[in-house]
């Protein structure tokens, strides 16, 4: 794969990769680093990238791998912030789900923040497939291929992730 081909990949998938990296990293500086490291790493293993049928999924899996290495220094910081955000959002916002259907609910800034914060508290096993599917817009099969797990397992983890987030939202609203 040459520089031109890599440039095309950046054009095609850069936004999805960056958005995913942002979910993992949480701030611009670290996201920029993770994003760059992902593509730099991709060049090193480009024989696998070329062979892969799904370059976006492959790039995401590189980002996940790189992120895992940096995970430890993040764990402390991230554990505190989302809970504070979630509590604040709950205090300011009356929970709509008791009276309204999700279809009718306006996805307010606070609610968006609550769902994001709750998602961020999930264990990686559930969190990463969730972000791959909803943030990087990968299909179930693409997620399965990138994580090298069966599609059924991806579906199960997504379902559990959604249930866990819902539970957290319900608990916080009490």
């Amino acid at each position: 794969m040459d520089i031109e081909a890599l440039g095309n990949l950046v054009q095609l998938h850069g936004k999805a990769i960056y958005g995913f990296c942002y979910k993992l990293a949480g701030n611009k500086a670290d996201t920029d680093d993770l994003y760059q490291e992902t593509f730099l790493k991709a060049i090193e293993v480009r024989h696998k990238l070329d062979a892969s049928q799904n370059p976006k999924g492959f790039l995401i899996s590189i980002a996940v791998g790189l992120r895992k290495n940096n995970r430890r220094k993040w764990a402390r910081r991230q554990r505190i912030a989302p809970i504070a955000e979630l509590n604040e959002a709950v205090d300011k916002h009356s929970w709509p789900y008791s009276n309204e259907t999700p279809e009718d609910a306006v996805l307010s800034q606070e609610l968006r923040g609550m769902i994001q914060a709750a998602a961020d508290r999930l264990d990686d096993r559930l969190r990463i497939p969730l972000y791959m599917h909803y943030t990087a817009e990968m299909s179930i099969d693409e997620v399965a291929s990138a994580l090298r797990i069966p599609s059924g397992t991806v579906k199960s983890r997504l379902s559990r992730a959604r249930e866990a987030v819902k539970k957290m939202l319900e608990v916080e609203s009490l």
């Binding site: 958005g19 920029d32 968006r112 769902i115 987030v165």
Partner: peptide
């Protein structure tokens, strides 16, 4: 499907390189 749409909206990325 409703929850799926909610998650999609909430978790969609607004960040761009």
């Amino acid at each position: 499907e409703k929850w799926d749409r909610l998650f999609k909206e909430a978790l969609a990325s607004t960040a761009e390189p």
